[in-house]
């Protein structure tokens, strides 16, 4: 039994929807009725069935459509995928990790056959069947990082480890929460996080860096983050901010349920074996307010989180203009009853 891949759009007519099953597996990010930064890193181990953590790299019903949207973004702006010259080896590491995990987790959709460095990769949902020589870039249509991440949901940053820091020296970023790979490539861990308010003062990044530098292969880790997006738009890039920024002014009490989305990022960290680099996949999940409130607990809790969010965070996340409208809309779903601990929908 395979995944039922949907045909839908993340631009223009925005036909994106979650099926009821997809809503139930949504990685709701709040374990209590409030939110503040924390390092919140945990081991990335395969989790319960029918959750997004069942496999190390989740493939879901939006896969084919998300990959189509990525191709559109790259055609418009090839600078969204870049790799500094010393990062090719890390690209091969990434390709190996993604292919082996996908083939292991979803054998009905992906297969990988290895004979020494002669590899045969089949991606049935996207109709790809390629034979290539591992390590030889001239045998693939793109460099290894771009090749495999055009077939993998989520953004990917690849971090070189040297001189006591992590350097973002390669990546593909087409579904980002408002940051520019093209501008940030080559920066270290503190520099590319520079625009994040409050967290530096809290020492969050220093602790996180120490942890990540010691991360070993075979022991991946993950954390989550969240923001909100108006319309189910994956490409909320700074590059196109002048095109989508006006979306934020279109929220009315009547359209909150369909237009306003909670956007959750699952950030993962893998030590790459040949290059000793870190792979930093950032997987994005979207859910409409109409879909979110089908869980009474999530509705109550998200109302309280959004209402009580510190103003600096609301500004950084770009919520200021429409937060009151959304809080007002959500308040109809909050009877003040206590919520149970944990993330699940009850």
């Amino acid at each position: 039994m395979g995944i039922n891949f949907k045909q839908e759009t993340f631009r223009d007519d925005f036909s994106f929807r979650n099926s009821p099953e997809q809503v139930r597996r949504f990685p709701f990010p709040f374990h209590e009725d409030g939110y503040m930064y924390s390092v919140n890193i945990e081991p990335h181990v395969p989790g319960a069935k029918n959750t997004v953590f069942e496999h190390l790299f989740d493939v879901d019903e939006h896969y084919v459509s998300e990959m189509h949207d990525r191709a559109l973004v790259l055609a418009e702006d090839p600078l969204r995928c870049q790799s500094l010259p010393h990062m090719t080896l890390a690209g091969w590491d990434t390709l190996e990790l993604l292919m082996t995990e996908k083939a292991k987790s979803y054998p009905e959709h992906f297969s990988l056959t290895r004979d020494g460095d002669k590899w045969h990769w089949v991606n049935r949902p996207l109709g790809i069947d390629d034979r290539f020589t591992f390590g030889d870039t001239s045998t693939l249509p793109y460099d290894p990082l771009e090749y495999i991440t055009r077939q993998s949901q989520g953004d990917f940053a690849v971090l070189d480890q040297r001189d006591g820091n992590l350097w973002m020296d390669a990546g593909i970023v087409t579904t980002q929460a408002d940051w520019s790979l093209d501008f940030d490539i080559g920066m270290n861990f503190f520099e590319w996080h520079a625009p994040v308010p409050l967290a530096h003062e809290m020492g969050v990044f220093k602790r996180a860096l120490k942890f990540l530098m010691a991360l070993q292969q075979g022991q991946p880790a993950r954390r989550h983050n969240w923001t909100m997006t108006i319309n189910p738009r994956l490409d909320t890039s700074p590059e196109n901010y002048h095109k989508w920024g006006t979306d934020r002014t279109t929220v009315t009490p009547e359209n909150v349920g369909d237009k306003v989305h909670l956007r959750v990022e699952i950030q993962m960290f893998f030590r790459l074996p040949r290059s000793n680099a870190l792979l930093f996949p950032i997987r994005c999940y979207l859910i409409k307010m109409d879909e979110l409130v089908t869980s009474p607990k999530w509705a109550r809790r998200f109302h309280r989180v959004l209402r009580d969010l510190p103003p600096e965070l609301a500004e950084y996340k770009g919520l200021v203009r429409y937060r009151p409208t959304v809080v007002e809309w959500l308040s109809k779903y909050d009877d003040g009853a206590p919520t149970s601990p944990g993330f699940g929908p009850d």
Binding site: L84, P85, H86, M87, L89, D160, Q161, R162, Q216, Q217, G218, Q219, P273, S275, N276
Partner: peptide, 12 residues
């Protein structure tokens, strides 16, 4: 143990 690299090449 799994391999750990504290003496890696600078590939630049």
């Amino acid at each position: 143990s799994n391999p750990v690299n504290l003496f890696s090449l600078d590939l630049r």
